[in-house]
Design a protein around this nucleic acid. Structure first.
Lengths: 221, 221
DNA sequence: TTGCTTCAGTTAGAAGCTATAACTCATGAA
DNA sequence: TTCATGAGTTATAGCTTCTAACTGAAGCAA
């Protein structure tokens, strides 16, 4: 990042982008754990250790991909408009996840035990959280404020400056939709014949309507 | 499995168990993706290719570990008693997950794209689903049946012979608790100071009470 | 234009991994 | 006692990440 505008800088940036492109292809087909620097180098036309001119190693490449994935999700959220509601965000999230399941898992899936995300990615992640919090801070279109706006007793002051009620809403938004999405993308619903999209929509309804929505039959929508 | 009662059979079974023991240690510390057959062999006192006398390869070993993990969860559910309610099961699930997060991820985490679970594990998995369905079929202790008992329109007949309402309940039980658990275990809540256990308990409340429970402040319980 | 520095890319190689092949030798059964 | 089975070995192929040392070209300055 921050390549200078010199010819060499432009070249570097382009090759870096090309490498990441190939990496994404590999991840989409075989998952992040099967990502091979040698295979990427072969495909780009470089020979092995040349990749280390562009990335310090496999970890740095993956970190860069994680950051790109976060940025991609942030951009998708941003494209929904600054005043997007939770329903829009939920729709965007599902589309983003289904568009490249392995990218979703790269961000929200099983973490590598030793790996600690650098400050960069937590920054980007908190930006996404901010978008979500904004949507959750906006009052619901219908009726009075739902009662799940109670503050979180876990700490004296939440890290984000959002109302505790919005944080609570954002949290359940995140966990419930991730619960459906991750199990769906992992294939845990195959065999049980129902449409995960309906379950997702039902959970979204439960999130947005004052009454839970769990009582609604899945035939809705 | 199905080792004969001969001396050699007993020895084989014991070495197999010892290998799996070491594998679990490795997984607990470094995750399943970092599992190394050579390292296991070294630790067991065998030298490299000797492991292939006991497991056809890395994949078969991991498959066996996945089956063991499923069996472990099934046993934990079973130990809660045949008439255990969803609250008990939720408590057992959380304890099982926190006891060995990597084991949880091995079962419910990011799948290997090429890998397809053999019939064995789906059988064991459906047994667990049956336990959960039993708990969800039992009527709620308080008040009338919640309205989320509506059937799933996704298919003509559900694969399990359970009432569609119970299946619906079991599904949201699974997705909501997995949503909290997986994000917690993956460390996505670190930094935001609140107690994931409270969020888990709140989601469980929402699952068991007729009113959603989302309106309850997290200070409960 | 000449010269020099920087850097992209190369080959060679170390250390690790999964997995196979071929061999030795002890165990267990006839 | 004979003999087949099989547990464990070393050697090896082929893959991986990553380091070291070298080559040669691109870009900059005098």
């Amino acid at each position: 990042m921050a390549e200078p505008a010199t010819p060499r800088g432009r070249y570097r940036a382009q090759v870096r982008a090309e490498i990441k492109e190939c990496a994404w292809e590999q991840i989409a087909t075989a998952g992040a754990s099967a990502l091979s620097l040698n295979a990427i180098a072969r495909q780009v036309g470089l020979s092995g250790p040349a990749l280390y001119r562009y990335f310090a190693g496999r970890d740095e490449l993956i970190t860069e991909l994680v950051k790109d994935a976060y940025r991609s999700l942030g951009a998708a959220f941003g494209a929904a408009g600054p005043g997007a509601g939770v329903a829009e965000l939920a729709h965007v999230l599902r589309g983003w996840a289904l568009d490249d399941p392995q990218r979703y898992f790269l961000v929200f899936g099983t973490p590598v035990p030793g790996y600690h995300a650098p400050g960069d990615v937590t920054t980007i992640a908190s930006e996404i959280m901010t978008t979500l919090l904004d949507a959750c801070t906006a009052p619901l279109p219908d009726g009075p404020e739902p009662s799940h706006a109670a503050p979180l007793p876990g700490g004296p002051a939440p890290p984000h400056a959002a109302p505790p009620a919005a944080l609570r809403r954002a949290l359940t938004f995140w966990t419930r939709l991730h619960g459906v999405l991750s199990l769906e993308l992992a294939g845990h619903f195959t065999g049980m014949d129902f449409d995960p999209a309906l379950l997702y929509a039902a959970e979204l309804d439960a999130l947005t309507c004052a009454d839970d929505g769990r009582d609604e039959p899945l035939t809705h929508r």
